[in-house]
């Protein structure tokens, strides 16, 4: 079982998810966030917080997003931890509207 961030997060990086993560396992690059599967406790706290529904839990990952499991696992450990709320990326609101949220 793994919880992952997927492409909806790209270009917006609202960090509502981070504030409720009990173990601070989100990491970030310039584009989006990733979850470190070795630290995440699969508590699902972050899932309902994400305004663009970018986060999925293990049993619920759509087939076309399955490759994100490996992407999260590879990238997260090499990136800085995101512990607190950050400013959304420029254009985040537009992107959110574009995604239909």
């Amino acid at each position: 079982m793994t919880t992952i961030v997927t492409d909806n997060c790209k270009g917006c990086r609202f960090t509502d998810c981070v504030t409720v993560c009990p173990v601070s396992c989100f990491h970030y690059d310039d584009e989006m966030l990733y979850i470190d599967p070795d630290v995440c406790i699969d508590c699902s706290a972050c899932i309902p917080e994400c305004p663009v529904q970018a986060i999925y839990e293990g049993d619920d990952i759509p087939e076309d997003k399955e490759h994100w499991i490996a992407i999260n696992a590879e990238r997260a450990p090499n990136l800085p931890v995101c512990e607190d709320k950050m400013d959304p990326l420029p254009g985040a609101e537009e992107r959110k509207a574009e995604l239909g949220f």
Partner: peptide, 11 residues
């Protein structure tokens, strides 16, 4: 709220 909810709340 669950475990993590308390983090934002305590902050």
């Amino acid at each position: 709220g669950i475990i993590g909810t308390n983090r934002a709340d305590s902050v």
